[in-house]
Design a protein around this nucleic acid. Structure first.
Lengths: 217, 217
DNA sequence: GATGTACCGTACCGTACGGTACATGATTGT
DNA sequence: ACAATCATGTACCGTACGGTACGGTACATC
């Protein structure tokens, strides 16, 4: 049995459907939203439009399925260590989180899906945006929350408001990089692996200056 | 003579054209991108489509003109104080900057234009995005840069890399609020004036912890 | 009062897209 | 072997949009 498949979240999608969604995502990544036409998806995936409508209902259903499917793929690896650990191990875990955050949010597919959801966020209740917030941001946020919690329990960090600490951590890591990348800019600090690493370390340094247990104020 | 008009940047737009752009912006704000049809703009502004094409070339020209026009309106008030000033006055100025940043980026028109630019950022070189970055972010950034510079000259702040200090300041102020608002979420910390004020003060507090001259490391 | 300019309103054209219907081939269960 | 189910490919329909053309109107300039 393939152990890889076990790390994926179970979805209600057929293999064929996932293949179609995969090619639709690829279409979105290098073509933008205007490239996502029902005929285009069908052509790229060698499937019929009728199948698309049978499986996903309508165009918005296809888009929602793309987000759900992608979210099931990038599900971040859960924490393995317990709450009791050394300060060095915790710092390392925090840096891993920061690095993962940068990698995920700067990924082409993530950017394309965020652009898609933002582009139609002004219309109605915008289920796409909610889907992206729930399955994207909130998942990452939950992981960070338990991480911060364990840091506090381990006596490494000190804060009153965990949510505020998370916001600060996020801000120090991402800054305005996300929006700039969404606008199509190639952010220098995201260029290569070492630049990302450097930025990550600096961000965590600042976070420790603000929330370390040994903080001097 | 009206002194207000002098604070506006000169643009090449006629009064009539500005009125048309104004109603187009209003259309965009409460209708999203899909509401911006040439016929819709003409109808809302009581002008003819032919005039639209004569003035702005094509649909993208209209969108570009909307961004340029809006940017000319929200041009932030320039700093008046010189580099030599008290620490209290500088801190106050920094808080004013933070407050202005929050107000501008959470404005309905700003959000709508950012959504518009992001929505079509994946296509080509995307002149809309560049326009928004140049006339939006970079203007604000320049203002913050001279502000930070004067803070260093006044002996209040200490940093080696001014750009890095700005990124940190921005991250502390905005966090992921911008993206969340772009996705349509109503961020609690942006709800009312006092919540914004509280958040602003906390952000500047953290910034001072990191970049104050009296920092202890 | 003639001429030119700028604008409005509307009608029109071509195209592209979302969605549906149908005919043909594959696959599976019995 | 055969029927039933499913998927593909194609053809089609209605509509909405970008862009253009044209007739009509107000106004200014000479």
């Amino acid at each position: 049995m393939n152990t890889h498949s076990e790390t994926f979240i179970e979805t209600d999608f057929t293999e064929r459907q996932m293949a179609v969604l995969e090619s639709a995502l690829r279409l979105l990544v290098d073509g933008g939203e205007k490239a996502i036409t029902t005929a285009g998806i069908a052509r790229a995936a060698n499937c019929s439009k009728e199948s698309l409508y049978k499986w996903f209902g309508d165009r918005d259903g296809i888009l929602a399925a793309m987000i759900t499917y992608q979210a099931s793929k990038v599900r971040v690896s859960a924490r393995l260590g317990g709450p009791s650990q050394s300060a060095e191990a915790f710092r390392s875990e925090l840096e891993t989180f920061a690095s993962d955050l940068l990698s995920v949010l700067s990924g082409k597919t993530s950017l394309a899906l965020n652009r898609l959801a933002i582009g139609q966020a002004s219309n109605d209740g915008s289920p796409l945006s909610n889907l992206l917030i729930e399955r994207g941001r909130n998942v990452v946020r939950e992981r960070a929350m338990v991480l911060l919690q364990s840091g506090q329990l381990a006596g490494v960090l000190r804060f009153d408001d965990r949510a505020e600490a998370f916001d600060t951590l996020y801000g120090l890591i991402m800054g305005d990089f996300h929006v700039r990348m969404l606008l199509g800019e190639t952010v220098p600090a995201m260029r290569d692996e070492i630049a990302q690493r450097e930025h990550t370390v600096a961000a965590i340094d600042k976070f420790y200056l603000l929330y370390s247990k040994d903080r001097l104020n």
